[in-house]
Each structure stands twice: as C-alpha cells, then as structure tokens.
Design a binder for these strands. Sequence first.
DNA 1: AAAAAAT
Length: 661
Amino acid sequence: MLGAVRRQGLAQALRACAPRSISARATPQVLRWQRPSAAAFPFASRSIYSSPYLRHAASGSGAAAQAQVEESLEETQDRITEFEDLAARQLVSPKIINNITKGMNIKTMTEVQSLTINETLKGDDVLAQAKTGTGKTIAFLIPVMQNILKDRSLERRNHGRSTPTDIRAIVISPTRELAEQIAVEARKLVANTGVVIQTAVGGTQKREGLRRIQYQGCHVLIGTPGRLNDILSDPSSGVKAPKLSAFVLDEADRLLDDGFAPAIEEIQTLLPDPMKVDRQTLMFSATVPREVMRMVRRTMKPNFKFVKTVPDDEVPTHMSVPQKAVYINGLENGLPAVLEIAKNYMEKQKQDTNLRPFKAIVYFNSTAQVSVAYESFTELRNDPNDPRSGHPLGRTRLYEIHSRLTQKRRTQCADFFRKSTSAILFSSDVTARGMDFPDVTHVIQVGVPRDRETYIHRLGRTARANKTGEGWILLHEGEESAYREKIGDLPIKEDTSVSSAGVNMSRENQQLPETAAETLSQIGAAMKLIPYKTKSDSYRAQLGTLPSVISSRRHMIKILNDLARFGYGLREPPVISPVLARKMNLDRVPGVNIGHEDPEDDGDARAVSRFGRDSRSGRSDFGDRRFGRDGFTRRPSRSDRAPWEGRGRINNDFANDRRMR
DNA sequence: AAAAAAT
C-alpha cells in the first residue's frame, strides 16, 4: 500500500516537472523494475525518494494519490536480459556484443543495463536513476556506440579514418579519473570496430591531447567540463562536433552542482542545434534534485523516459552494508583508530582464510588531512625505534589520491590501487563517486562528511558487484549533532571494539591495553617523521571544514589544538593569519596562534629521528599567547614526547579541562 | 581555510 502511494508520488513529481503545455501523450514514462518476490527487508525503499525534490513532491501529493501510474509491465516481461539477444535481434552490432561476451566475459545484463538499454536503443532520451556499481557505464555506452556504428558514412569518409570533426558522442564526467575509467571501458567495447575514443581532461598536456585527436580523429570524446569546454571553444583546435548524435552526462547530480553548471552550459552552446541535428541525450544520476530536473527539461526531448533502476524493494547499499560508528576521544585518535581497524581485520583474516584481503579506502574532508594520513602511515614501523622492524600492516600497499597531486600521480595511484590485493587508499572525495575499485572490503570515513550524498557515495565504493564490504565512520563527540542531522537515520551501529579510539591521549602513565599502547606509540613515532608543513596545512584546512560541524569556535579550537599537540606532536598550534582570524571570528578565542608564517625551525615538538637523536631545538617566541587553556598550556620544556610513551609531562589542569568542555 | 574542476 505504502509502495503504491510512493509510486504515485513519483509519477506526480515527474508530471509536475514537465511543461504544462505538453500533452498527456508526451508525459515521460516511468519504467520500473519489479522484484519477482517481495522479500521483507527492514529498510526497503527508504532511499528511493532520497532526493529532496522527489521527497517533497511525493509528500505533497496526498489529494491526487488516486492517480494511476503508467507502468509498462509488458515491456518488463519481454525485456532483453542477455547481451547475446541484442545481437540476435539485430539491435546491436555483433562486434560490440562479441567484445562484451568474449572480450569482457559478461553474458547477462545487470538490472540497470537491461532497463536502460531496452529504452535507449529505441533512440529516446533517458534520465536514469541508478545506484552506482551496477554497470551503468556499459548501459549508456552501448546505445551510443551502436548509433555510431550504424552510420555507414563513417567507413567511406577519409578512407575509413576519423577526423577531429567526426565527433558523434560527448560524455561528461565530474572527475578526471572517472572520465579515464569510462574511456577504458569504451575502448574495450569497440575493440576492432574502428570507433575512436578520446579523452579530454584537465591536468594533462592540452597540446598533446589535441595532437592525438587531430592525428587519430575522434568519434567519442569523454572528458571533464573544464577541458571539454576549453577544447570545443577554441576555434584553432579544429575539434568540432557538427554531427553529434549523443550527449551523455554521467553523475548528473554531481555535474549540476555548483561550479560545473556554467561550463556545461557553455559546452552545450558549442554543440549543434538539437532541432537541426537530432541527438540522443542520456543522463545518469544517483539522485534527482531540482537542478537535474531543470536540466532534463531544458535539454531532453519532451517524451524522455525516466528509468528508475532502484527497485522499490531492493535494499540499497547504504541500507544493507554493515556500518559502524566509532567514537574517538579526540581528533588525535583518528589515525590510531584507522590503524587498529586495519590490524584487527588482518588478524581475523589470518585465522579465517575465507575473509578477503584488507583493501580499504579512508576518506577525509580535506586534501591536507589525506597527506598527513598517507605520510604518517608510510612511516609506520613495528618498533618505532628500529627502522628495520617492518611495517605493522605487512605488505599492505599505501596510496593517496586527491586533487593536489599531479594528474600523473593520481592516475597512477588509482591504477595501482585498483590492481592491489591488499592496500589502503587515503582519499579526498575525488574517488567518492563512480570510481570502480574491485574488492574494496572497508570504507572508513574520518569525520562527518559534508553531506548525506557524499556519505552514501563514499560507502558505495565497497560492496560492489555482489561482494560484501563494511563501512566505518570515526566521530568526535563534537561532531555528534551534525552526524545525527545528516545521517542519523542510516543503519549505523556504534562499535566499541577499537581500543585506541577512546584513549585520552593527553594523559600520561596510563594503563592501556597492549594493542592500544602499541598502536598509539607507532602512530606517534611516525608522526614525528613527517614535515611540519604537512601538519600545519592540515590544521588550517580543518579550520575550513570543522565550522560546519562544530558550532562553537572555542570548542573547535580546543579540539584542533589537542590534535596539533597530542596527534601531530607539535609544541604550539600552527599560526593563523590575522586576516583569517578576523574573518573567522577567531581573534579573541583562547589558544589561537595569530601570526604570519610557519616557524622556520619547524616548530615540531621534538623531531626525534629514527636513530634517536634530537635534530631540532626548541624556540619560544610566541609570547604569552601560548599560556591559556588551549592545549598548549605548558612552556615547552625538556620533554615533548607523546604522553603514552610514558615519559612526557603535561599540564594536569589542561587534562582535566578536556572532560568539561 | 574548506572536494572537484582550465591554464
């Protein structure tokens, strides 16, 4: 019953967004997959109206809830589900099908593929709402390629070679890696057909890319908004798409977010008038917010199809994957907790060979935090005093990826991680959407993500292709309210198995469980080996991300200073420029270190090298500012060793302070 | 000072 109301709500939403003048006949059809037997899942259909637009439309449609929904069951019944059949019915070139069934060894379509391919092959415009990791790339590539192959003029022109004005399809993706990933897939699909695939993404040599297009030609151009716009708007590039027959937006919701829309609109003005040169527009989107609907209405034919491939009764990933929340005592407990989660799993995996090798993505909200994590994990040693003692995670490979790396490094890391059996990828949200890394067993999110969608997309990197996986999120109690607000309704269970998470790292001489003590000292030692700038950048970066999560400035500075001191091992908080301090209303907050530059001598607590020699001496020209209830209460003295090493001395007033925030 | 993305 509830399901029926929901269905009607959806149809309503779609009608509401179609222009009024459009006749009933032109109302977009809603196609929906029905699970044969409705299994009773506790969380069924919760995610279906996760988009604000549809949720709103659905809830406001009470009076009209009687309306019938168009549901084409006939089409559901004789829908093609085997790739072979597409060739047998002469819908798709046997070459393409052969590449799929033999080359890629895929026989049966996923639900997304089956539902969308059956529609797109008819030539209609399609908006598909699809869960990630369900083969949607192939789903939109097949009709695009088929359209290109069936144009016989391709073969005659230019002695069978392509030219830079031959572009038949443009595919836009929100990240460079995703564009490359789509191109790789596309090339497999059209192997030995003569169709030329090219990419246009930032961070690469524009001239080199252009030369490749000029020399090899291009039928399908896959890229990111900026570079695509750059190339198409540059008349001297000679790259044009006068015969464009397909236009695809992957991750449309993301693409229509702030920032991308202007570039995409500009690209559209550079394409031929769709009224004169007929083209098929396809959009894939995990959610269907207002912006996506607006773009659909502006660019798609009035009879576009809406294909919803999240079945009513299928449990979406973020409802079925086991998810755990770990409360950390301070932000400084974050990396120890990550390390311990890894160790615990690897220990279990030794006992139980059925468990897959540990392969994790660890997400942070800023690039600088990613670097701190990656660099410190690289420096880990079993025995911090002996560089030869081996890494606590054994042969687990470590990678980092974010926008501040060169494109070459990014691509390399993505490739390496994809191929690794046991690895950790420290990542910003570059990889949050669409990226397909096989066999990821863990997604660990450090801190509350910027929004609900981000959480769900990150989590979607695991449990792909019918595999299992688990999600973890590490939370400071100061983040609790933001956490509950954003994702409090998801099935995330509190987990208390991570012993180093709850340790108060400001206290010395504590009796700690062995695993916690070991983990904390390993991280603490590794942290001393990484550059000061990496840490101070991370501190400042979090001044940018935390205010949306923690409302009190005082509290924020307090926990950041704890991180600087007990996590990063710094003697004093990194400087904040006077301008920034004023802008953020921090000038009167205790513990804020207002200054101009990072100290020349590093400001590190005590850069103890692996060989045990002190390599830096202290400096204290920060005056009285340091002497407040700010986490840096004590004048730096002989020992700045981390308290859990048992020899440090810290101010107990301050330690008590931690309890009464 | 806070993902991403054109130079």
